[in-house]
Write a protein that binds this DNA or RNA. Sequence first.
DNA 1: CGTCTCCTTGATGATTCTCAATGCGCGTGG
DNA 2: CCACGCGCATTGAGAATCATCAAGGAGACG
Lengths: 266, 266
Amino acid sequence: MSQYETHSISPRSHFSDVVLRRLSGLATLSEREAALVLAMGSQRQVHNSGAELFGEGHLRGRPKVLLSGWACRCRVLPDGRRQILTFTLPGDAIGLCRRPSPAALSTAVALTKVVTADATTLAEAAFEHDGQYEGLASAVSAAGALDDANLLDQIVRLGRHTAHERMAHLFLELRWRLAAVGLASESRFPLPLTQEVLADALGLSIVHVNRTMQQLRRDGLIETRSGYVEILQPQTMAAICDFSPPQVGRPLERDPRAADPLRPIA
Amino acid sequence: MSQYETHSISPRSHFSDVVLRRLSGLATLSEREAALVLAMGSQRQVHNSGAELFGEGHLRGRPKVLLSGWACRCRVLPDGRRQILTFTLPGDAIGLCRRPSPAALSTAVALTKVVTADATTLAEAAFEHDGQYEGLASAVSAAGALDDANLLDQIVRLGRHTAHERMAHLFLELRWRLAAVGLASESRFPLPLTQEVLADALGLSIVHVNRTMQQLRRDGLIETRSGYVEILQPQTMAAICDFSPPQVGRPLERDPRAADPLRPIA
DNA sequence: CGTCTCCTTGATGATTCTCAATGCGCGTGG
DNA sequence: CCACGCGCATTGAGAATCATCAAGGAGACG
């Protein structure tokens, strides 16, 4: 689980190149903007697994970006049932929103050991009105659109997908999102989650997650090994669950290598 | 179903006071802002039930507000399964978002006969940077936050609620949202939807929606009559499904009468 | 070596779906 | 006026999916 961190791009130095990679995949950043993103890494904070990163109903904290580790946004019902709304992956923002809403709509929780950076300067730059950070503005905006798209995908998964489709779809989403920050190869990605966490994300019981996963293995669609998932037949799987990566941002003017983030990992 | 429209506030004149009522419940509007909102009513458009109001993947149309009738945002799977993401009620916006994303993330469809107005001027005013429409800006922002909150509620419903809880929770949400625009009394609200539409929203089959609804009736929680739902025991129902109205906006400085939109209907 | 967490498995039951048929209201055309 | 069709609500029966309960196993760690 926690060996995940040792696989990120630069194990011991700043992780903030993950954020840079994420944002520059969404818009072209000037050197000044890139420098601003990298400079964020100085205000780091480490949280243990289970720590609350952003509280529901509390006054808004400062926005953060996730440098390493996995987190989620979730809601807990009075009787203990939990629903994970979205996973937050390295390079993703937490509480970065131009709305000055005083209440976070959900609780952000660390699912592994997590490193965050303060994103206040990023937020201020991206939301500047004078156009001096155009690239950042459109990158942050596109990241927000992707977050929205992921929420809608989650609704469709929970409402109209079978257990198999849900799991296949989620795995493909995670592969795609991780690939966008260089953390997944074409077929392999880290999955530092217990089956209980997967259950809470997919709206299933732990036992049924276990059996569904076995079925995917028996069908030759995936393999799992030491905290990693290998997708053996991406096309078949995408066909089964009707997965397609969200089309957000600038479809045409974008760097062709960035069009399929699953290729140029090298 | 379509007699719903005859119950809105001003049956034959402009419906745009619905939008004004909605936005002024979220922030204090100046007279100039109120006039701007009312002026939107001039560019009206009528759509029949089933019409597509905003297409997925298409280039962004102009933003609209719903003056009367019900619509929804939905996704359709290749095999015909449909998931309704959210309901769009009178006073709600469609495609009103400061993100210049070229692709709508879902399809907006009219569920009844619907009247919309062009909201381009509203969008431009609310997103002005020079602070001359502060009230509009914060009202539109709060409306967006409420939309987000409804999406998250939908995820929890689909992921972790039983069929009964889902239906009870959705009914309470609809009552609350309709009350905010003066279209629901404390216990009664219009529900111009077929059971098939409810099924697509709740992630259930038509048959099971039917049986769940009967159960709610037998339990003495609701009554249904000619396109209306009457909630007989709001407290019990809210306790069953853990419903609480979203806390968004300015909790303190707000007009106390607006705090509980279910009271001051008169 | 004991304990803890997590994964796995079996058995049983509840929830929910599918298929199929019936009824009911309503408009339409004969 | 009445038969007919159509959309929608309702009901029954049977099956599939998924949850719950309970127990065992494998690995990590002190």
